[in-house]
Amino acid sequence: MFKKKLIHFSCKKIWNGIFLTNNALLQVNKIIKKYSTINGIRLILKKTGCFGFKYKIEPIKKPFKDDLIFQNNNIYIYIKKVDIIFIDGTKIDFIQKNFKEYFKYYNSKIIKSCGCGESFNIKN
């Protein structure tokens, strides 16, 4: 069970939303502040790896026409409509361990992950 306090990013549509820990929110803020021309991040489900998919976060200047917008205060997370059925409800944490920093995703729709944890398979 996930025990950290979560910050809810909601959408005006029927979706459950995206949930960030405080560490993840602080890191997203750092990404946004690093670039003066962006207003949010895009959470992407990318086809790759030995199990099929991996998450990717990138800063964006403006949303695509088919993006859903998830918001908490003045922070925006954009997700493509085609990806939302696989991403909806995902919990995101930011881990700092030794010399390694990374976003960690918790998604109940993931059915298998590869040995290194980089890619995964999703039930649809």
Results as ranks from 00 to 15, higher is better:
Met1Leu: 06
Met1Ser: 11
Phe2Trp: 13
Lys4His: 03
Lys4Thr: 04
Leu6Ile: 10
Leu6Pro: 04
Ile7Trp: 08
Phe9Asn: 03
Ser10Gly: 10
Lys12Pro: 03
Ile14Thr: 05
Trp15Glu: 04
Trp15His: 14
Asn16Ala: 00
Gly17Ser: 09
Gly17Leu: 07
Gly17Glu: 12
Ile18Ala: 02
Phe19Thr: 06
Leu20Trp: 10
Leu20Asp: 10
Thr21Lys: 05
Thr21Asp: 06
Asn22Tyr: 12
Ala24Val: 07
Ala24Asn: 04
Leu25Tyr: 09
Leu25Cys: 03
Leu26Trp: 00
Gln27His: 03
Gln27Tyr: 01
Val28Cys: 03
Val28Met: 05
Val28Gly: 03
Asn29Glu: 15
Lys30Tyr: 06
Ile32His: 12
Ser36Asp: 14
Ser36Ala: 06
Thr37Asn: 11
Thr37Asp: 13
Ile38Glu: 11
Gly40Pro: 15
Arg42Trp: 06
Leu43Arg: 12
Ile44Arg: 05
Leu45Met: 05
Leu45Ile: 12
Leu45Trp: 09
Leu45Val: 11
Leu45Glu: 07
Lys46Ile: 10
Lys46Pro: 02
Lys47Met: 08
Gly49Pro: 01
Cys50Gly: 06
Cys50Lys: 08
Phe51Thr: 03
Phe53His: 00
Phe53Lys: 00
Tyr55Asp: 05
Lys56Leu: 01
Ile57Pro: 14
Pro59Asn: 12
Pro59Thr: 12
Pro63Ala: 00
Lys65Pro: 11
Lys65Tyr: 09
Asp67Lys: 12
Leu68His: 14
Ile69His: 10
Ile69Leu: 14
Ile69Ser: 11
Phe70Asn: 10
Phe70Trp: 07
Phe70His: 11
Gln71Thr: 09
Asn72Ile: 02
Asn72Arg: 09
Asn72Lys: 09
Asn73Ser: 07
Asn74Phe: 06
Asn74Leu: 07
Ile77Gly: 10
Tyr78Ile: 01
Lys81His: 02
Asp83Thr: 04
Asp83Pro: 07
Ile84His: 03
Ile84Tyr: 01
Ile85Tyr: 10
Ile85His: 06
Ile85Arg: 12
Phe86Pro: 00
Phe86Asn: 06
Asp88Met: 08
Gly89Val: 02
Gly89Tyr: 06
Gly89Cys: 05
Lys91Gln: 15
Lys91Asp: 08
Ile92Asn: 15
Asp93Gly: 01
Phe94Thr: 11
Gln96Phe: 11
Asn98Phe: 15
Asn98His: 14
Asn98Tyr: 13
Lys104Ala: 15
Tyr105Phe: 09
Asn107Trp: 01
Asn107Ile: 08
Lys109Pro: 07
Ile110Trp: 05
Ile110Cys: 05
Ser113Asp: 12
Cys114Met: 11
Cys116Arg: 02
Cys116Asp: 05
Gly117Ala: 00
Ser119Asp: 03
Ser119Met: 00
Ser119Pro: 04
Asn121Thr: 13
Asn124Phe: 08
